[in-house]
Amino acid sequence: MNSNTLPHIFRFIGLFIAQVLVIQNIEFERGVLSYVHPMIYPLFIILLPIKTPVPLVTALGFTMGLMIDYLYSSFGMHAGAAVFVAYTRSFVLNFLEPRGGYNVSYSPNAKRYSIRWFLQYSAIMLFLHHVFYFSLQFFAPVYIVPILLNTIGSMIVSFMLVAFFQIIFDPQD
């Protein structure tokens, strides 16, 4: 437990509280807005250092998702999506590897690599997370249209929130 992991612990707790205490209570009922269900806790997984071993990332994702599930009363939906995103993080990072390679002790943030790269990376991760989450929520391929609508609606807001986070907090290593 050194100063390197401290920011991550803060992010864990902070994003968790923000998600369950603030965002959970923002509920829209009518029209287009009913498809908006923002989720920002994947940011915790996104910002983990690159060198974290994949099993650990997966386990951390599971823990985060499980705790959120407990307070959302959704028993497995968030945990499932979080585990999925945590596992595929390594593939996404491989795919997006910048030309100079990664400096693996640092987290993939905008200061190290360009903000454009960070937005690409977080967009992909958020998209994967949301699709998986809503697929678990509806659980049947016949509901493909609601799944897509929810994904797109929520993605927009989640992505905006991630951008705000970037601007406000400007995460370092």
């Binding site: 071993p53 994949v54 099993p55 997966t58 386990a59 599971f62 998702g65 599930d69 028993f75 497995g76 939906m77 945990a79 499932g80 585990v83 999925f84 596992y87 390594s90 678990l136 659980f139």
Partner: peptide, 16 residues
């Protein structure tokens, strides 16, 4: 790691 992923995902779907 893949096995762990499958295991955890399996637990999630089971709960679900």
């Amino acid at each position: 790691s893949f096995v762990l992923f499958l295991l955890l995902e399996g637990i999630c779907i089971f709960m679900l």
